[in-house]
Nucleic acid binder design. Structure first.
Length: 636
RNA sequence: GCUGGCGUAGCUCAACGGUAGAGCAGCUGAUUUGUAAUCAGCAGGUUGUAGGUUCAACUCCUAUCGCCAGCUCCA
């Protein structure tokens, strides 16, 4: 065995004898114990791996994203070991890492009870304490198939059947073995801070036609502190849950007799309408015209549009006078009728029809959730009818509008996905290709990075989806832009070109907030219920210190009200601290405190939600301040 | 729809085979109070619904509805 040259992360090169294990090299270099794996020329490997050629070496620390991923994967293995120790006969399937954690799917006749989960967790701690060495082993695929078949692991055998390589790797810890690509932590003792977080059913390979497996979720971290911090964030998210805030702030509620259909209370309805007004103001500037269209249509319409063939499972139907009707799940077909109500010229295009019409979509029970997934909703929906050569300009305008909207709501980050032709589609392949290219071109032109989501388009055309990240960095899909050459065809839409010939317009389906319901839910979580002043159902609460100031407070209240501010008066016989607390809990942006001093000086003392006390000021100055705040937020 | 969990007062939760209890909210009264909770009293529940087991059911069983966590699907 000769010597080899190893280039270390610090740029220095060291000469070691071939066959030296990375671990041994690390020990000799005094590398800290957080290093749990390494990279040879960029490929992640176990510390147990021997160095056999000249290479560049990088350390993978527990604190790096790659290290965390390895830790979590190893924790999934540890869990699988515990499960098979405790419940012989349970088969393992797959156990990948996910954001902040991992899961492992098991084949077992019954599901895991909370008590069993506790037992599994305890068993995992014991196995971790044993600090079992995690050893990699490479064997021929055929031998692996033989091995897992003997062990009764049918799923592993199936997985092995799909692996093209002739050699596969196994990982052993104690007497437990699993098929795995690796790498893993060197020994189970590296797994320090973990918690099993949930159980759920999951279909084998994610297909509901397959048998259901039992999934256990968990999370794993380098330190106890990191684990605690993660659990704290989960608690924080719970506090922001819009379902909880919706009740606490008296915005909306649900009733079992109208499942998945929200009731907006006065304050919630105010916010809802204000969101719609906001979009209407934008429509004025961006050249949209609002239309109102029917709620139910003869199924004939849905047959023509393709919804009957491709969206029927999500629709509500009703029969009357021997005629079958479908409640609209989308506005688009209705808009084609307005388009087709007269002869159109190229001079009319683009035509932008906006519609806040109520939509109903049947969603399988079990998928609905709060405001984010409902059966009755409306969208800031619009359909743009334009000539093919206008697509680009429309897309650019749309992206500008979209950015403006997201900035207003302080969604500073977004991800973009281009979804292509699904299995169920209408129209020709050629037309689909054209539409997909158009969308991709537009994104490139605007310099927007995007991922492709194959097969995720609407049945009538490809789409661009926009996912925003909220304050807790959770992703939410809001906007969608869909390019449609089929609907104009199906409804035989046309316009007269400059040359006097007839041409087919293109339809762009688009929504920026998405559904108003869903957007409201996301916005509530984003701002933790503290809506910006312009959107808050109550903007100011005027409050007295004692009854002495009631008269003046009433005057201030009337004054603000007359100026159009949404204001309430709290003249109750309670301590100021009590009134302040209530206003704070209700997340009202401003409390206007009035005591004897204010009466004497004809001022108010505003207090911002959050605790900031402002100097006493006259009502006029206060109003100017509010105005400036609104203007700043809305940028106009 | 599927897997699992959970439904007790408006809200948060207790009681877990022996005829339902607390805090907050609500109402009444006292208190006139300066930036996140003044005190006292009162009222409020056929324990989601329908069956069943039992001398006895909030508690055990079955069905059903709803909610929650996932799977699948999606705005």
């Amino acid at each position: 065995m000769g010597n080899i040259q190893v280039r270390l992360p610090d740029g220095k090169t060291t000469e070691v004898s071939s066959g030296l294990k990375i671990q041994e090299l690390a020990a000799s270099l005094g590398i800290d114990s957080n290093v749990i794996a390494a990279k040879i020329d960029g490929v992640a490997v176990d510390l147990d791996r021997a160095l056999s050629r000249d290479c560049t070496l990088d350390w993978i620390s527990l604190n790096s994203p790659e290290g965390l991923d390895i830790l979590r994967h190893s924790t999934a293995h540890l869990m699988a070991q515990a499960v098979q120790d405790l419940f012989p006969g349970t088969q393992v399937t797959i156990g990948p890492t996910i954001e902040d954690g991992f899961y492992y799917d098991f084949k077992r006749d019954r599901s895991f009870t909370p008590e069993e989960i506790e037992k599994i967790e305890a068993c995992m701690r014991e196995l971790a304490a044993l600090n079992l060495k995690v050893a990699r082993e490479e064997i021929a695929r055929e031998s692996a198939i033989e091995l897992f078949r003997r062990m009764g692991e049918e799923y592993k055998v199936e997985i092995l059947g799909d692996i093209p390589e002739e050699t596969v790797s196994l990982y052993r810890q104690g007497d437990w073995v699993d098929l795995c690509r690796g790498p893993h932590v060197p020994s189970t003792g590296a797994i320090r801070a973990f918690k099993l977080t949930g159980v759920a059913g999951a279909y084998w390979r994610g297909d509901e036609k397959n048998e259901m497996l039992q999934r256990i979720y968990g999370t794993s971290w380098p330190t106890e502190e990191a684990l605690r911090e993660h659990l704290r964030l989960l608690e924080e998210a719970k506090k922001r849950d819009h379902r909880r805030l919706g009740r606490e702030l008296d915005l909306f509620s649900f009733h079992p007799l109208a499942p998945a259909s929200p009731f907006f209370h006065p304050k919630g309805a105010f916010v809802y309408n204000e969101l719609v007004s906001y979009m209407r103001r934008l429509y004025l500037r961006y050249g949209y015209q609002e239309v109102i269209t029917p709620q139910i249509f003869d199924v004939e319409l849905w047959r023509r549009s393709g919804h009957y063939d491709h969206f029927k499972e999500n629709m509500y139907f009703t029969r009357i006078e021997e005629r079958e009707f479908g409640v609209k799940p989308m506005n688009c077909p209705g808009h084609t009728f307005i388009y087709a109500s007269k002869k159109r010229s190229y001079r009319d295009l683009p035509l932008r029809y906006a519609d806040f019409g109520r939509l109903h979509r049947f969603e399988k029970s079990g998928v609905t959730a709060g405001l984010t997934r409902v059966r009755s909703f409306s969208q800031d929906d619009a359909h743009i009818f334009c000539a093919p050569d206008q697509i680009e300009g429309e897309m650019a305008a749309l992206l500008k509008m979209l950015r403006e909207v997201y900035q207003t709501f302080q969604f500073t980050e977004m991800q973009v996905k281009l979804s292509t032709r699904p299995d169920h589609f209408i129209g020709s392949l050629e037309v689909w290709g054209r539409a997909e290219d158009s969308l991709a071109q537009s994104l490139k032109k605007e310099g927007i990075a995007y991922q492709v989501n194959p097969g995720d388009g609407a049945f009538y055309g490809p789409k661009i989806d926009f996912v925003v990240l909220d304050a807790l960095r959770r992703g939410w899909q809001l906007a969608t832009i869909q390019l449609d050459f089929s609907m104009p065809e199906r409804f035989d839409l046309s316009y007269v070109t400059p040359g006097g010939t007839e041409a087919r317009p293109v339809m762009i389906h688009r929504a920026i907030l998405g559904s108003i319901e869903r957007f409201m839910g996301i916005l509530i979580e984003h701002c933790a219920g503290a809506l910006p002043v312009w959107l808050a159902p109550v903007q100011v609460r005027v409050m007295t210190v004692t009854d002495e100031q009631k008269e003046y407070a009433q005057k201030v209240f009337e004054e603000l009200k007359a100026l159009g501010w949404r204001v309430e008066l709290d003249g109750r016989n309670e301590k100021l601290g009590y009134k302040i607390r209530e206003a704070q809990v209700e997340k009202i942006p401003y409390a206007a405190v009035i005591g004897d001093r204010e009466v004497k000086e004809q001022t108010i003392s505003p207090r911002r939600r959050g605790g900031e006390n402002l100097k006493p000021m006259c009502v006029k100055d206060f109003v100017e301040m509010l105005k400036a705040e609104v203007t700043q937020a809305l940028g106009n």
